[in-house]
């Protein structure tokens, strides 16, 4: 993907700047850009290490088990078709917990494992099953208690109060998730009806 987009960006912006005689701006922005990437990474190093450390403490306690138990009714509501499949339920639960805690790197492998388990139950192996679609929609909804990356960006740019966006992010995420889940449920019902006819 980026192998296509990146050269396009570079070619368009560099050639436009050169032809419009904007060379001085172009040069200074080249060095500005790499410098702000360094600044962001240094600030991010602090935030990421702090958060990864704290979450690692949490994963070594029973907090995960408690969260797992709390999520079970929600999972049963979202995935009515896998009521008997405890393995799939547990994998989906672990994937959701990793997302909530902001462990993007751990969430994806867990989610893919759940996809594999769901594929075994899938009647048509060429098509996503209803449960798979729900799993993907939940993963694209980005439900996260602390949006660490964005806090790091804000603090690297010297925001007065880098964490002030947390509640607005929660509100927007919850609205997006509710709509995503509702739309998915409605479309599942619609496609089930069509199959019966």
């Amino acid at each position: 993907m980026l192998n296509l987009v990146w050269p396009i960006f570079i070619i368009i912006s560099f050639s436009y700047a050169i032809f419009s005689g904007n060379l001085q701006n172009l040069n200074s922005s080249i060095f500005d850009s790499v410098e702000s990437a360094v600044n962001l990474s240094i600030t991010m190093l602090g935030t990421m290490c702090l958060w990864s450390g704290i979450i690692h403490v949490a994963t070594n306690t029973n907090i995960m088990k408690i969260m797992n138990r709390l999520l079970k009714p929600i999972i049963r509501f979202l995935f009515p078709e896998i009521k008997e499949n405890i393995k799939a339920q547990n994998e989906i639960s672990m994937n959701m917990i990793a997302n909530i805690l902001g462990l993007g790197n751990a969430a994806t492998p867990l989610g893919l494992k759940a996809m594999e388990t769901l594929q075994k139950e899938n009647k048509n192996k060429q098509e996503l099953s209803n449960s798979m679609i729900m799993l993907i929609v939940i993963n694209t909804a980005s439900i996260q208690i602390i949006p660490t990356t964005i806090i790091a960006i804000r603090s690297s740019l010297g925001a007065q109060n880098p964490t002030s966006i947390i509640v607005p992010v929660w509100i927007a995420t919850i609205c997006a998730a509710i709509v995503g889940i509702t739309v998915t449920k409605l479309l599942i019902r619609y496609s089930n009806k069509r199959e019966k006819i």
């Binding site: 980026l2 990146w6 960006f9 570079i10 368009i12 912006s13 560099f14 436009y16 700047a17 419009s20 904007n22 701006n25 172009l26 200074s28 922005s29 080249i30 500005d32 850009s33 790499v34 702000s36 990437a37 360094v38 962001l40 990474s41 991010m44 190093l45 990421m48 290490c49 990864s52 790197n105």
Partner: peptide, 23 residues
């Protein structure tokens, strides 16, 4: 995590920064 994403950030900050400054 940060070391893995660093080279990507350099490349993309360059692309986006010059898209902005070139107009």
């Amino acid at each position: 995590i940060v070391i893995n994403i660093f080279p990507t950030l350099i490349g993309l900050f360059l692309a986006v920064g010059t898209l902005r400054s070139s107009g």
